[in-house]
Write a protein that binds this DNA or RNA. Sequence first.
DNA 1: TCCTGTGAATGTCTTCACAGCC
DNA 2: GGCTGTGAAGACATTCACAGGA
Lengths: 225, 225
Amino acid sequence: MERSRRRIPEATVARLPVYLRTLLDLRDDGADTISSERLAELAGVNAAKVRKDLSWLGSYGTRGVGYDVDQLLLEISRELGLTRDWPVAIVGVGNLGAALANYGGFGDRGFPVAALVDADPAKVGSVVAGHAVHHIDELDDLVAELGIAIGIIATPAVGAQEVADRLVAAGVTSILNFAPAVVTVPTQTTLRKVDLALELQVLSFYGRRDSLRDELRGVDDESVA
Amino acid sequence: MERSRRRIPEATVARLPVYLRTLLDLRDDGADTISSERLAELAGVNAAKVRKDLSWLGSYGTRGVGYDVDQLLLEISRELGLTRDWPVAIVGVGNLGAALANYGGFGDRGFPVAALVDADPAKVGSVVAGHAVHHIDELDDLVAELGIAIGIIATPAVGAQEVADRLVAAGVTSILNFAPAVVTVPTQTTLRKVDLALELQVLSFYGRRDSLRDELRGVDDESVA
DNA sequence: TCCTGTGAATGTCTTCACAGCC
DNA sequence: GGCTGTGAAGACATTCACAGGA
């Protein structure tokens, strides 16, 4: 029970959004309660993991029955800090930055794109996804005025560290880095990265199985993501 | 020494691309050798981890000196299966799919975009990033003709599972899923996912530190990605 | 002397298995 | 009877610390 007082493991935090999405689908389908077994199946993990993950939030299940879908949605949303919106700034309005700006999935999930910023004067003033592109020198003002807490780096690798520094200086406390470069931030800033080429390179590693079919992998279940 | 015979840990595989990128930069800067300490610094990890990771490839370092940059590049590339190109197919040519098609970082790193596919007849026949968009019914032929081993799912969540099934049926053995949905594939297929909203939700979790500044985290170093 | 390679120790995450409650 | 919540066991990953080769 006092589980909820201790620190939630990183691995659990990374799965909460998956449960959240699954529960939203379930609610739309009219489900009232859900067992760990079924939730596990829908979320692509195993049931013990679901139970342990959810136990970090407190004891919200009912033995013999399962979890209340609405309550679980509320608790997970609260734990993730999703009871309010978090406006984001996208830095770098190239292909990727523009695509992210156009991607509706952010606003829908409580992360409205509040500002687009670029260092290229040719891009400043243009309109992308309904937002005027601002010069990066305006970052401080935009962050302050729009209450931006999250910055997305969608620049080439070369500029990434400087952009990160500027975001931090402007008061942004969370950064999502899409640039294929190692970026360093102060301890109190949270940094995550999405490295597209890395993902393909990892796939390449596991794909070589064609060439070395000797090493049979001992997996029973289907793989899931 | 016989380290190289055992299975390389997943966590190590996920870091090899980072070392690879770092080593390419070092080579461009004219470096011949590199110590684990310096490589660790540049890659944003610690030195013991670098040494243990690299030891899985064999004993390619020289005590008292460090690692030969070129040799390490070769060994990592070989281990990741990057000594050849892996053509990819992108399924779903919306904002994200189009951005990925335009993103030069794939081709540069040995993953040329070989085919674009969509289910929407209105998009079929149009040209995106220099590629004609094909109907998804042509997937089997495209995969066979172009030797495609990797598929990228860039559709909305709803279509993702069916696309995955079609990719597998067409002979694709590795899939990168950008759709915010759980997708299941047979064991022999490798699946990875990139979930953009999930990343922001995780940032939101750690960002709430504002509201609950009680729980001080015991981290000394700077955080890095 | 310097830096790798690696056992051993530690820490984190997953899975098992079952007591306990509905 | 069914399903949660959780100690305990096991697997995996990181970090330490140092023997040993260049």
